[in-house]
Design a protein around this nucleic acid. Structure first.
Lengths: 172, 172
DNA sequence: GGGTACATGTAATCAGTTACATGATTTA
DNA sequence: TAAATCATGTAACTGATTACATGTACCC
């Protein structure tokens, strides 16, 4: 079995949470990872099952009522997670921006920019709220640093689309 | 049939190129779109086939030798491409950065940052070369603007990882 | 004339997405 | 108590990735 980023997200959440149901993972993702790496919640039902089959997590199913499944890291699971975390990667992210794609393929930037500006400004505002709310608390370092990257990225996109809009050469 | 970004990439390339083989598309992607939106070349064989079935492109196959397939936009193809290009989107890109994910899930930033810095600096250098090479030429506006976004993003990532590395609070 | 890189494609698999579905809880 | 929303999941599909495969041209 090939472990994907989704796999490590599940393993990582379990390393924090002890024992989690898919629904609990879904909530955790929505509040954090989902901002920079999203996927449908159905993955959080399928992926732990695969991981269980491969021995990286164990499953406990409620005998009554909802019969929810609870997952927990096995030793092997801890081990692969640790290894993955310790290994740096030279892999670079891609922009994968639909508006950029449209522009590349000939769309009029003056039509794209205002809509993108609006959306990026909204998201920036949300990130700033979260940042404020997390200040002074004991939120995990990693989460805070990831949010910082999000803040930077949003500010940068706003500056970019502003320049595209008013015709300044956005490169150089 | 649902048209995906990959579909529009094919349609868009054909709108520039007139008539193209999958291999020609592959080369075009590698030199441009691939920098910010990549996918395996096998898609460039599968996708035009789907588009042909749906009537957005026409196929002409060589009778002899390599029997290559050549694709060309139909009127319907032109039409959907035009509509997609004219419609702005509020959809926002995600960072989807593996290193960020590792950091979020507990990795040591001091281990991640140097490797990422190296990779981002290399890529920035390449983008700067391309930017220079394209200066003063009649390269399409859209491509140039997309490259500008790439330059900005690389510079931003470099600043980010530098700050993560020397312990400056990277947000705020 | 043997290797190596480019050119060109196909097949199989699977992760990820979309769509659907139902029970429980809150709210108006 | 009706309606909405949250909680919790399953099933089917398919786009995307991985792996494989062969032909052609160039170069040492």
């Amino acid at each position: 079995m090939q472990l994907t980023p989704t796999s490590y997200i599940v393993l990582g959440l379990l390393s924090f949470g002890g024992e989690l149901t898919p629904y609990a993972m879904k909530q955790a993702v929505e509040l954090s990872i989902g901002y920079f790496w999203s996927f449908p919640h159905s993955q959080l039902y399928a992926e732990p099952e695969r991981l269980a089959k491969a021995g990286y997590v164990s499953e406990r199913r409620e005998a009554e009522g909802r019969r929810r499944r609870h997952y927990r890291l096995t030793d092997r699971g801890h081990e692969v997670l640790r290894q993955w975390r310790e290994e740096p990667t030279a892999e670079l992210p891609e922009l994968r921006d639909v508006s950029l794609l449209k522009m590349f393929l000939g769309a009029d930037p003056a039509i794209l920019a205002p809509v993108q500006l609006r959306a990026h400004r909204d998201r920036l505002a949300r990130y700033e709220e979260i940042w404020e709310a997390g200040s002074g608390t004991d939120a995990p370092e990693g989460a805070r640093r990831a949010l910082a990257a999000g803040l930077r990225a949003e500010r940068e996109w706003i500056a970019y689309w502003e320049e595209v809009l008013d015709g300044t050469d956005p490169g150089g």
